[in-house]
Design a binder for these strands. Sequence first.
DNA 1: TAATCGTGGAA
DNA 2: TTTCCAAGATT
Length: 353
Amino acid sequence: MRDGQSIETDIATTMLDWYDRHARDLPWRTSAAELNSGARPDPYRVWLSEIMLQQTTVAAVRDYFHRFTTRWPTVDDLAAAPDGAVMGEWAGLGYYARARNLLKCARIVAEEHGGRFPDRYDDLIALPGIGPYTAAAISAIAFDRPETVMDGNVERVAARLYDIHTPLPAAKSELKARAELLTPRLRPGDYAQAMMDLGATICTPKSPACGICPLQSPCAARRAGTAPELPRKMPKTAKPTRRGIVYLACRADGAWLMERRPDKGLLGGMLGWPGSDWKDGAAGAPPVSADWSTLAAEVRHTFTHFHLVLTVRTATVDMGCAPETGFFIPNRDFRPSELPTVMRKAFDLCRER
DNA sequence: TAATCGTGGAA
DNA sequence: TTTCCAAGATT
């Protein structure tokens, strides 16, 4: 520790030095060089990236971020988009409540905030889809306000830095208190991104690269040899397996029978094939009378908390038929890329046959 | 507080 | 093949 500085200040300084040399070049990131030239981050791009990055890898987000910002360059553009267009563009990224809240939030910012994102934590967290992490991240990264971001990376770095063995989620409050003491007044946005970069590239969940870590000197877990086993977590319950049926009806003109799933619940707001519940045991009647055939292969898909095995049934139906549910999407408007992955898997099986 | 809510890549 | 996990929010 240098003269006149606390160990906390020293750690923050070390992280900023490391960030200046090793920051990753990401599409939504404003580089230190650009910031030094007076450029400011675009809060819209910071917000959009942070929503997409919730529980989602950088690799998965990249293309989605590019498509969204190309199609809707500003929050006003996004606010004016039809619901179905946004849900379709989000398809495949998962956690679809994020897309529904994204649109709600964009419309509030456009209509009630004049198209400008608020800069304060308390105002940001009041917006749909913005929780404690994202409010702090936007405030720090886009507006350089001294907020402490607590995501999985920072939790892991803090647990190791202070050798905290309390299992998550019980350890969250202690980890946050530790992390808050580290957040610097100078360049808090860069510091936040530095901590997350460190967690993503060096202080990784498995086999952390302690040998090249800028914090190896002050790290208590490194000293104790406990880094790889931290943070501890409560054991997870096993996933049950559920079953269901989907019906893929193709009309004589090539149109497909689909339905818009209700906003609440699994895959809410997304397009899907009519079918049974996935509660196990439910029969599920066909949406229209036809000569249905059952595919030999089944769809296997795993959600966050259960496995799903789907039986796929297909039929060709008449032009004049009147389904009990759903609507026909003309063949020229039908894009598998706008389906959630489990629904696209069912379509792919139907195609291969 | 605990459950719900997706997906794909890595080990 | 299975498990783990990734810049969490909501109810």
